[in-house]
Design a protein around this nucleic acid. Sequence first.
DNA 1: CGTCCCCTTGAATGAAGTCAATACGCGTGG
DNA 2: CCACGCGTATTGACTTCATTCAAGGGGACG
Lengths: 262, 262
Amino acid sequence: MVRSGIISLASRRTGLSNPLVEKLGHFVKLAPPDRQMIQRISSERTRDFGAREDIIQEGDRPEHINLILSGWACRYKVLEDGRRQVIAFFLPGDLCDLNLFVLRQMDHSIGAITSVTLSEISRSGFDELMLAHPRITQGLWWESLVAAATQREWAVNLGQRDATERMAHLFCELFLRLRTVGLARENSIDMPLTQSELGEATGLSAVHVNRTLQELRALGLIVLKDRTLTIPDFGALKDVALFNANYLHLEHEGRHLDANEA
Amino acid sequence: MVRSGIISLASRRTGLSNPLVEKLGHFVKLAPPDRQMIQRISSERTRDFGAREDIIQEGDRPEHINLILSGWACRYKVLEDGRRQVIAFFLPGDLCDLNLFVLRQMDHSIGAITSVTLSEISRSGFDELMLAHPRITQGLWWESLVAAATQREWAVNLGQRDATERMAHLFCELFLRLRTVGLARENSIDMPLTQSELGEATGLSAVHVNRTLQELRALGLIVLKDRTLTIPDFGALKDVALFNANYLHLEHEGRHLDANEA
DNA sequence: CGTCCCCTTGAATGAAGTCAATACGCGTGG
DNA sequence: CCACGCGTATTGACTTCATTCAAGGGGACG
């Protein structure tokens, strides 16, 4: 596994601010020192991965927390016979694994989808963050609970929705999540996933993903071309998907935590 | 449904101790004061629910953490059109919601399956626990990470496994989880779930659950009768299910945390 | 004794998977 | 420059798995 280390690209790609700052800002009000702290910690040790490269493999015992700075990654599991399920997508601003300080080894893998730049946050860096910056701590709690809620929603998606609804739901989620880190345009986002990867995430065969996409296109719900997904009418897609954004807890819910504002 | 006997049965089965004590003991070595603390806190305020009764509903803002003392419950979500997905099962020793101190409202519901006795742990009681008993804190981290891992495994189950594998997998999981709280007999467990509930958990129709169960029976993999599930050959069921227990992290992984033993 | 819930079974339908062939774009090396 | 290979997308025909609809059985309970 090649693991070089180029630092500068990331900040250029995501604009000036850090995607985690951007994301947490939707939940808690971060003071300038909070932002600087996140900024600092997430640029201390960055690392680049090529597309398709594994970031962490099942059985590893990782030593740090990974923060995605740019690119897409995914959490996945492979059955003995090779079937693969993508369990979650990681977008810029997402933290990969808070669990690793407690559990002995990874029970799944994390792989880059596009090329990825991430920041490796050490245990001590993390503790420092939590101790000195309660606002960030609150934000990280929020992030981790939303990740759990998203995981639950995926179970609903896989268990109850049919192919069309499932695909539509995934697109709704990705659009909103990218928007909270400033990576959505008016009504479109980058869509680096191949049809086969979409299938691994939705539990559908690649062939059926293809047909499902065509259906969504025919209904005028999406435009998907040149690795760009456009959603002309989000409300319409949302209705088809039976999508309810509650589980993303985006409504700036943390305001009540700002009582003792700086 | 008369279930008065069940409560006393449970405590007899788990011995004197509390299912949470039993469970955490698989991960961290609890000292007598730790056990007493859990015991005390979980008997402070208990509450009973009838079978099928909702414990928490979507939209609620719960004020405490619920610890299941006896009975089965589930986390579930309902789509606008009524389709229902069970997202997780709660067994004795399971904690329902650590999230409620951060997120504004529940994005799903929790319902009793059998009659349930649970303990309502207040925020302050919880803080007390965490502050004075680092061993318990570690254990609770483990419990919450395993719950997350289980949630991920469900996504794999729903996304990749066919009906037979899926059902077999669920049975393997329930058996092992009940065993870690002392509620499994040699090779059998109570199985209070109706076929329709099994369907809601596995994303299958009740009719197909029925046929799937028959298949598992015909293969000699399970005996399911009188609300009791017997697994004559766990290894065989495990193979059919492509079940890998890693995700439950049962191997007493927390031993390394016992360095400063009392 | 009837009702309700749960389980069971059969037949028909429908959704998604598999297999296989073809097309397209892109980069590489001849 | 073009041929080739490779990964990705598309399409059709067929199969398999699971759902739906419908009917009937059994046990618990009022």
